[in-house]
Simulated scan of single mutants.
Amino acid sequence: MNKLLIASAILMVAPFAAQAGADFVEGDKIFGGDAELGATLTTGNTETTSIKGRLDMKHELGNWENQYLLEALYKEDTGEITGKRYYGLIQADYQFSAVNYMFFNANHEIDPFTGFDSKSTVSSGYGHKFIDDGRTLFNVEIGPGYQFKQLDDESALAAGYDTEDSWVAHGVANFETEITDSSKFKQMFVADYGDSLEGRSETSVTANIIGALAMKFAVIVRYNSAPLDDKKSTDTETNMTLLYAF
């Protein structure tokens, strides 16, 4: 755990420390992002609640491009919680050129339905933009990382240990393209390979409704090659949300 805390501190401090000696120019500051929200509520013979929220912010400052991401998912069926997931990510990219950059990434996930109380991963490495013409973006990232997991009490009792940690190879492939002037397609793959292979795929289509308001349809698939006993290796999530860009 100490290794993870030290690595997280280094990754979070690095972009700010590098900028500390530079002169700040207001014209170089660019900040924006988008917020998503989707909900389903039913009452009567069937009582269900489903809420999905996401806040994705990006900040450009000189050669740095930073991302701050928060996600939350909550599901309840007739008073019983059937889904709960919270995820946070910080990533800083240092641009060497228009197509080459170094990334620093730290993320934390809470999903008790996997048998783990939490999972944290830190990584850094090299990124390259193969296509970036204003309408289409295709970039790939690869580098080493470190992952730490905390098992819940039930899983720890069954397994005989309460934590897992390993060094991982971290990779990302991201593709985005504008279908029309008012719609966009995105496909992203994220993988961490260490003691097991863990992957995440997100496919989405976004269509503008009016102004900064859009509708987003997304399919998310999560995969773990070595899940805990009584857990499935693949989880899927399909949702439709309203998205507001700012």
Rank of each mutant, 00 (worst) to 15 (best):
Q91G: 01
N100W: 12
G62C: 05
F113S: 03
Q91I: 06
H108K: 10
E141P: 00
T121N: 15
V99Y: 12
F130S: 05
N45C: 13
G143A: 10
H128M: 07
N63I: 06
A35T: 14
Y101I: 03
A106T: 14
T49S: 11
I30L: 09
D132E: 15
G83E: 07
N107L: 11
T49M: 14
F103V: 12
P112L: 09
Q95N: 15
D132I: 02
K52R: 14
V25I: 05
G83L: 10
F31Q: 04
S97M: 11
L55N: 01
L73A: 13
V140N: 02
N45I: 12
M102I: 12
L69N: 01
G27I: 12
N45V: 07
N107A: 05
Y74M: 12
G115E: 04
V25L: 09
Y94L: 08
N63S: 09
G32Y: 00
Y74W: 08
A35S: 13
F24I: 15
Y74H: 13
Q95E: 07
T43L: 03
P144I: 11
Y86P: 01
I30K: 11
D23M: 11
L73H: 06
I90G: 13
S123M: 05
D56K: 00
L69Q: 01
K75P: 00
N63M: 05
Q147R: 08
A106V: 11
R135P: 00
S118Y: 05
E26H: 13
K119D: 05
A106D: 09
K84L: 15
L70R: 00
A18T: 15
G21D: 15
I81V: 14
G83M: 04
G53W: 00
D34G: 09
D117R: 04
T78C: 04
E65F: 11
E65L: 14
F130L: 15
A20T: 06
L41E: 10
Q91V: 14
Y146D: 04
K149I: 04
A20F: 09
V140C: 03
E26M: 14
D93N: 09
E109K: 01
Q150C: 03
F103S: 01
G127S: 04
A98S: 13
I110T: 10
N100P: 00
I30P: 00
E65W: 02
H59V: 01
L69H: 02
M102T: 06
G115K: 04
E71I: 07
P15I: 12
D111R: 02
Y94A: 08
F113G: 08
E47T: 12
A35E: 04
Q150Y: 10
A17Q: 11
L61R: 13
F16A: 06
H108G: 08
E71S: 13
L41N: 09
W64N: 06
F113Y: 08
G62S: 09
A106G: 09
P15L: 12
W64I: 03
R135Q: 07
K29P: 01
R54V: 08
A18R: 06
N63P: 09
I131C: 09
I142G: 15
